[in-house]
Simulated assay, not measured.
Amino acid sequence: MKCLPFLQCHQMMLFGKISQQLCGLKKLPWSCDCRYFWGWLNAVFHKVDYERIRDVGPDRAASEWLLRCGAMVRYHNQERWQKDYNHLPTGPLDKYKVQAIDATDSCIMSIGFDYMEGLHHVERIRLRKCHYIKDDYLEKLGKLENLQKSVLEMEIISCVNVTKASLLYITQET
């Protein structure tokens, strides 16, 4: 599943004529600030399901979230990347531990970050062109003890909302 595309204001005219007064309001999802609407919709989509985490375990729940967002995961003792949500492996819930995450061009955002808290075996995280990733996400990642202990490599490339300050924060040893 791919992220919903950002639409330009003139494309929103398909939904009806938007008055100039309404276009000036930035907080309404149907205003000309279309990014707000899609950001809001993605935020609803990313809401963490704590019952699901409890029922299937953190690795399975995180895998489901990541795949729904267009990312890929690789499990320990597996060479293939899992790309398709509909083909997640079956079997005992504790059998598949996430070893690597490739979130290239995905729509993961910090609202779904709590899915990462229970992952204890992740060695590699790749964030490329993740437009919803912001500094607060990286700061949260840097504070997770389980990931501090397991992550050996983190690649952050072309994430437009990530500043140099957060990169420095995440590279500091605590």
Rank of each mutant, 00 (worst) to 15 (best):
K2Q: 15
K2G: 15
C3N: 08
L4V: 00
L4Y: 06
P5D: 08
P5N: 09
F6L: 12
F6R: 09
Q8V: 07
C9M: 08
M12P: 03
M12K: 14
M12Y: 11
M13C: 13
L14V: 14
I18M: 03
Q21N: 04
C23V: 09
G24T: 06
G24Y: 01
L25Q: 01
K27N: 10
K27M: 00
P29R: 11
W30H: 00
W30D: 00
S31K: 04
R35W: 06
R35Q: 12
L41E: 02
N42G: 01
V44R: 08
V44E: 13
H46L: 13
H46R: 07
K47F: 12
K47H: 11
V48C: 05
V48P: 05
D49A: 00
Y50H: 03
E51K: 08
E51N: 00
I53S: 01
V56D: 04
G57P: 03
G57S: 03
G57W: 01
P58N: 05
R60T: 00
R60P: 03
R60K: 07
A61Q: 04
A62S: 09
A62C: 14
W65Q: 01
W65M: 02
C69W: 06
C69F: 06
A71W: 04
A71C: 12
V73Y: 01
R74H: 11
Y75D: 11
H76S: 14
H76A: 15
N77I: 00
Q78V: 04
W81S: 05
W81D: 12
W81F: 09
Q82R: 11
Q82V: 13
K83C: 13
K83L: 14
D84F: 07
N86Q: 11
H87Q: 15
L88Y: 04
P89N: 12
P89A: 07
T90D: 07
T90K: 15
T90F: 14
G91N: 07
G91M: 07
P92G: 06
D94T: 09
Y96D: 02
K97P: 12
V98N: 01
V98P: 03
Q99A: 07
I101D: 00
A103Q: 09
D105L: 05
D105V: 06
C107N: 08
I108R: 13
S110H: 07
I111L: 08
G112K: 01
D114F: 08
E117I: 13
G118E: 03
G118W: 04
G118L: 10
L119A: 04
H120Q: 15
H120W: 13
H121N: 11
E123V: 10
R124A: 09
R126N: 01
R126V: 11
L127T: 03
R128W: 10
C130E: 04
H131Y: 05
H131S: 06
I133F: 11
I133Q: 00
K134H: 05
K134P: 02
D135E: 03
D136P: 08
D136L: 02
Y137D: 04
L138I: 05
K140L: 02
K143F: 09
L144A: 07
N146E: 11
N146H: 01
L147I: 08
L147R: 13
Q148E: 06
Q148F: 03
K149P: 02
S150N: 10
L152E: 13
M154K: 05
I156V: 12
C159I: 00
V160C: 06
V162H: 05
V162N: 00
A165M: 15
I170H: 07
T171D: 11
T171N: 11
Q172C: 15
Q172E: 15
